[in-house]
Design a protein around this nucleic acid. Sequence first.
DNA 1: CTAAAAACTTGCAAAATGCAATTATAAGTT
DNA 2: AACTTATAATTGCATTTTGCAAGTTTTTAG
Lengths: 149, 149
Amino acid sequence: MENPRELFQIMTRRLGLLNKTCCSVDGCDLSVNQSHLLYEIDRSHNPSMQQVAETLGTDITTFSRQVQSLMKMNLVQKTPDPTDRRIYTLSLTPEGSRVTATIDQQMNEFLNEVFSNMSEFETETLLRSIKLFNEAMGKSSKCCKPVTG
Amino acid sequence: MENPRELFQIMTRRLGLLNKTCCSVDGCDLSVNQSHLLYEIDRSHNPSMQQVAETLGTDITTFSRQVQSLMKMNLVQKTPDPTDRRIYTLSLTPEGSRVTATIDQQMNEFLNEVFSNMSEFETETLLRSIKLFNEAMGKSSKCCKPVTG
DNA sequence: CTAAAAACTTGCAAAATGCAATTATAAGTT
DNA sequence: AACTTATAATTGCATTTTGCAAGTTTTTAG
């Protein structure tokens, strides 16, 4: 288990399993992808479809349909950009905000439950380390830019 | 960004993007799922189908088909268990081993590239922290056991 | 020796995906 | 202004992935 990749593989698999079970709010059943989408729309300020799709590394046509189904669920809304009418701006509906906040809370509850098996010092060290790691990934040329092919 | 969930969300998204682009070996194009499958078969000692499917949190019927396609690609083989003929034992073919090792190497190269943007101390701290975190998840009742519903 | 359970597979229908083509708007060129 | 090119988003269609229900084969229990 000295292999860095192994550590990350196990971790992401377990986090993935968590996600699978963690996205049901108010009878609203969300897939992992949908929760990512809500998260990202919430985080950015009135992003365009392209922007979010690229951030998530999702094909724009697939993304278009994902947005459509979230609109049907009344969680997301599309607003035409006044300065460029080709562009639609995404935002959460009030219900979407509630659902997103609830998911966030559930995830944090789960994480805290896991952290209860670690010391406070270990937890803080972990969080600080991940923050650094995320920054390092941001600097990397190989990551986060959905390089096609 | 003080929110633990945010840190993990960003991290897993970026690692997920990495995975998307990282699984092409010798003309063999593998999906993320398939690489997880190879990884897990490699890691366990002659596991049964059920075992791997459960570990990965995949429905057994879906898993059965995933194995079939990896067998067609000549990366995985199924061996009937001599003591219980209902059970099939999974293992990698020589080619499967090569491919799996190559993916492992590619992933580690990527990780090292990211680590080059961190100090050696920070990297070691990160890896130690993740190890602790994985252990903590293992102790958690809410995780890693694909609880249905 | 029959019934129940377990491991795995297949049928089928639903959902997700991505490329190609289309619509609508914007920007650049002559 | 007229025309071409580029960009944002959607739709058609075919492929792949998924999971439940049902089936086969083998093992275990009563």
